[in-house]
């Protein structure tokens, strides 16, 4: 948690990052940036999915519709915050010549997406409310 707060401070203070270690090959930095952008796209897709659920599933009961939309929007916000945090950690690790940080987040997101997909298959096969 304290490490996270320190990272948040670094998001707004780029000079502090520059002072650490040595500048890595620019291609590694660009690869890290593309990974960051891929995560931002995932976050935007989740946010767009939240809006889409709210707009294009009017037959769903209110609680389900709003709950699903809020869950998707929340997952999108979480995903984007995690994207910038992980990008910063990778950038610092590369400057210091350390191993890249490992993360449980991709596995977590995969499991959540898989569970939602299986639930939707069951819902479609059984039929919504019979």
């Amino acid at each position: 948690m304290i490490a996270f707060v320190r990272n948040v401070r670094l998001w707004f203070a780029p000079e502090d990052v520059r002072e650490e270690g040595s500048t890595p090959d620019y291609r590694f930095s660009l690869a890290n940036e593309r990974t960051f952008l891929a995560w931002v796209r995932t976050a935007l897709a989740l946010i767009g999915g939240g809006f889409a659920v709210d707009q294009f599933l009017p037959d769903l009961r209110w609680a389900w519709r709003v709950g699903l939309a809020l869950a998707l929007l929340g997952a999108g916000a979480l995903c984007s915050l995690r994207a910038v945090n992980h990008w910063m950690r990778c950038e610092r690790a590369m400057r210091r010549g350390e191993d890249l940080p490992v993360s449980r987040f991709p596995a977590l997101l995969s499991v959540v997406v898989a569970v939602v997909a299986v639930a939707m298959v069951v819902v479609v096969l059984v039929g919504w409310e019979g």
Binding site: L10, W11, F12, A13, P14, V17, T23, Y26, S29, L30, N32, E33, F36, V40, A43, L44, I47, G50, L73, G74, G76, A77, S80, L81, A83, V84, W87, M88, E91
Partner: peptide
Amino acid sequence: PALAPRHATAAIVCTVAMA
């Protein structure tokens, strides 16, 4: 040059604010 943290944060602030 590498992406400045300020710009990454700005992009994320836009994304989170949209959520």
